[in-house]
């Protein structure tokens, strides 16, 4: 179910501005990889190239290769819609569909592209996904209530349930806890630990302790200056990045000397 991501020579642009330059890395299946780095270093942009969401932004453009096992996501004839079904995404701010109930939110992705299911199948998907997102016990009695009525942390777990309901290979998380309180953050972090049994997880975070807590591998991004493209400085085992990084800039960043 989980696939390996292999990126080589990736550049991304906003119009004429080059946002990230020449990124190559490998993300192992069934692991958590964290992206850290100062604001504007392109880590979110890079994350969004992994499910072809970057090109949705006006002027957004990508060069290079992203291999998901042996399929190039940017190959000719690859449908971005199909890519996004394989590579799920969770956003910074919880974004359940406000007009839909909790139940409908979870099956929103399943029902797309003309997907027709029997009620019993959908019920099964909803229960499995909500259990997978550690939300089932809190909402099982009010599945038909609006998803927007939940607390922020619950909404974010609802979004995770919605993302895993379509059984993706990879789960991308763009600062999933930055709008949440510490208790909800802890709940999401525990959940990430469980989800990596089934999915390849990539998480962007501003919180270095979080990266240290949840990830197996950590990638540090940096940019030379304002207006310069962001670059991958190094990627290594999380323990090594936080104890003995091989690049001086990484050590400066994680020890709080800048950023």
């Amino acid at each position: 179910m989980a696939k390996r991501i292999d990126v080589s020579g990736l550049n991304a642009y906003y119009g004429t501005h080059k946002a990230i330059e020449d990124i190559s890395m490998t993300v192992e299946p069934r692991s958590v990889t964290a992206f850290i780095g100062p604001s504007g270093c392109g880590k979110s942009t890079f994350l969004r190239t992994l499910n072809r969401m970057h090109e949705v932004t006006p002027g957004g453009r990508v060069e290079g290769k992203v291999m998901l096992d042996d399929e190039n996501l940017y190959g000719s004839g690859v449908d971005p819609v199909a890519v996004r079904r394989t590579v799920g995404m969770v956003f910074q701010r919880p974004n359940p569909f406000p007009t839909m109930s909790i139940y409908e939110n979870v099956v929103a992705g399943v029902r797309l592209n003309g997907g027709r299911y029997r009620k019993s199948e959908l019920d099964g998907i909803v229960e499995k996904s909500l259990k997978g997102a550690n939300l089932w016990n809190e909402v099982k009695d009010r599945l038909n209530k609006p998803g927007a009525g939940l607390s922020g942390g619950q909404q974010q777990r609802l979004c995770i349930a919605r993302a895993i309901a379509v059984e993706p290979q990879v789960l991308l998380m763009d600062e999933p806890c930055s709008a949440l309180d510490p208790i909800s953050t802890l709940a999401i972090e525990d959940l990430i630990g469980e989800l990596k049994e089934r999915f390849t997880i990539v998480i962007v975070t501003h919180n270095m302790q979080q990266a240290a807590r949840v990830s197996d591998r950590t990638a540090f991004f940096n940019l030379a200056g304002v207006g310069q493209p962001g670059k991958l400085i190094e990627i290594d085992d999380t323990e090594r990045i936080f104890s003995n990084p091989s690049v001086q800039a990484t050590e400066d960043y994680i020890s709080g000397r800048f950023g």
Binding site: V56, F91, L112, V166
Partner: peptide, 21 residues
Amino acid sequence: PKMHEEAALALGATRWEVIRM
């Protein structure tokens, strides 16, 4: 809201499905 359109897109919605959702 952009964030709901992105939510739909990230689930693998086509343009029409984004509009509908």
